[in-house]
């Protein structure tokens, strides 16, 4: 079985601040992995570095379905099959959600009728009908933005999906809907990395592997019981078990998160 996403000794910094300090990860096709970790440990940065955010400089290697991606632009990576559901997607006023899905489909050479069919289907599923003709992420609640992101993943159907806290801020029904969608992504031509703070979604969709990130590294990986351990003893308990001193583990500054607010440079 091939590997949807492979990451090897990935280091990344923004300015002079190093945030990722050597990440290794391998998600085979057909698997869903959960990535957990305290705030500021570098989870969102990992997603943005893999997606090709221009603010980061990265070293190391990463592959999507065997193709190296770190030298590619964000658009090329997405067309190759890596798509992220953003934690806090930026508003794009004046640009309709349906329009960017159609443009994205066109860039992939997807037939417009097939694109419309996928859009209609995903829209029904995530109840996005009222949002298709509205500006992307503009004037949306937190939960609506999450729905919009998972809707887009569903339309674009990537080889490797990065879900950055897609389950947070959702009501319980929508968590179930998202969980069902993630469960369906566990198919032979797809691999999923799901970042989550809550084990709630993990009671609906059981991950094949759970990774824990601290201080810009994956410090331990395990089966679904690792999530349960965290739920019971917290990151502090895990640190004790692994013999990690809390100082040094999560002192990473947080510039990366602050970039991904809705209006990052609005004046």
């Amino acid at each position: 079985m091939g590997v949807a996403l492979k990451v090897q000794n990935l280091r990344a910094s923004v300015g002079s601040v190093e945030i990722l300090r050597g990440v290794d990860l391998e998600i085979p096709f057909g698997q869903m992995h959960a990535l957990m970790g305290p705030n500021g440990s570098g989870k969102s940065t990992l997603c943005h570095v893999l997606s090709g955010h221009p603010d980061f400089t990265a070293e190391g290697k990463a592959w999507v379905d065997g193709e190296e991606i770190l030298d590619l632009g964000a658009d090329q990576r997405a067309r190759l099959g890596l798509v992220q559901a953003f934690q806090s997607p930026v508003a794009v006023p004046g640009v309709e959600l349906e329009e960017i899905m159609q443009e994205a489909a066109e860039e992939r050479g997807i037939d417009p009728d097939e694109a419309d069919r996928r859009i209609a289907e995903a829209s029904r599923r995530f109840d996005m009908g009222p949002f298709l003709g509205r500006s992307v992420n503009d004037d949306l609640s937190g939960g609506e933005k999450k729905r919009s992101e998972i809707f887009q993943i569903s339309v674009l159907s990537p080889k490797a999906a990065l879900l950055d806290e897609t389950d947070s801020g959702l009501d319980i029904d929508m968590v179930r809907t998202v969980a069902a969608a993630v469960e369906e992504m566990r198919r032979p031509d797809m691999g999923v990395l799901m970042i989550t703070h809550h084990s709630r979604i993990l009671s609906y969709v059981i991950p094949d592997r759970v990774h824990v990130m601290m201080g810009g590294k994956i410090v331990t990986s395990g089966g679904p019981d690792l999530a349960q351990e965290l739920e019971q003893s917290g990151y502090e308990g895990l640190r004790k078990r692994l013999g990690i001193t809390s100082a040094g583990a999560d002192t990473t500054p947080k510039p990366a998160f602050d970039f991904f607010t809705d209006h990052p440079f609005s004046s």
Binding site: P54, D75, V90, V95, I100, E107, F259
Partner: peptide, 28 residues
């Protein structure tokens, strides 16, 4: 703005096309 540009590109839309979309959206 760079963030909306990155966002559109992260959907697989080329930079040139994303810029055109943003200019169009700006005036819309």
């Amino acid at each position: 703005e760079t963030e909306p540009l990155y966002y559109l590109m992260s959907r697989g839309i080329s930079k040139a096309r994303a810029e055109r979309i943003l200019v169009r959206g700006f005036f819309e």
